[in-house]
Write a protein that binds this DNA or RNA. Structure first.
Lengths: 114, 114
DNA sequence: ACGACACTGAACCGATTGGTGCAATGACGG
DNA sequence: CCGTCATTGCACCAATCGGTTCAGTGTCGT
């Protein structure tokens, strides 16, 4: 009874946010504490505008939360804990292992819970 | 800074392959056993050409393996076990939890220096 | 008040994506 | 050999993506 199929839009947004090494770097950086757009942009040699777009993508996916403080924007890790993304991958891992067993003729528990 | 990630292009391909509900459906379907392009396309009301492209994306990410048998192409789950994708998400989860620890430490520090 | 600073909005650009339709190509069945 | 069937290659399309520049907007320090 794995609720692996959440709202597709949510999973879409999370995975496509993660599908970019710059954005994964941003998350890693924010793991060390909050940062401004400028601080995030600098190590990538990117314009502020470009970085703002990346941060926006992460924010839309819930992976980053931002707050305007003074003239700069403080970015920190968001509320999305990637549980759904993790759960879907776990589900896939189980599919894969079932394939390894070589017994496709198994009663499938998850089949109805799409 | 980020030796936590493997080849970033590999991760890029995996996550962007997963960032589409049609492709996640394909993986789920293939968990029940091999299928042809036509069998995969039919439930999505998609053209064969369109489905071939999706399968190609999954194959490039290593999530699907295909083999031409007779006049049809048999698609099955591939060798990529999503361990890297899973590992990266776990890494992020640890960052997130450290963020909480950091907050806790911060408040403790505040209390101590007060 | 003024200038520097941090960001943002808009317009633009080339490449990629997700899809289509149409014309091969190659395998099967008779 | 012939017709059908499954797939594929190619050209095309609109939308999105990752990035830029340039012109604001609002805030900070003096």
């Amino acid at each position: 009874m794995v609720n692996h199929m959440v709202q597709h839009d949510t999973l879409d947004r999370i995975y496509s946010a993660l599908a970019d090494s710059t954005r994964r770097d941003i998350l890693t950086r924010l793991g060390d504490g909050p940062a401004s757009i400028g601080e995030l942009a600098e190590p990538h040699g990117m314009t502020l505008t470009g970085m703002t777009k990346h941060v926006r993508v992460l924010e839309d996916a819930g992976l980053v939360r931002t707050e305007k403080v003074g003239r700069s924007r403080q970015c920190r890790l968001g509320e999305e804990r990637l549980d759904d993304a993790m759960a879907w991958i776990s589900f896939y891992q189980r599919l894969w292992e079932r394939r390894l067993d070589g017994l496709e003729a198994y009663f499938t528990l998850q089949k109805g819970t799409d």
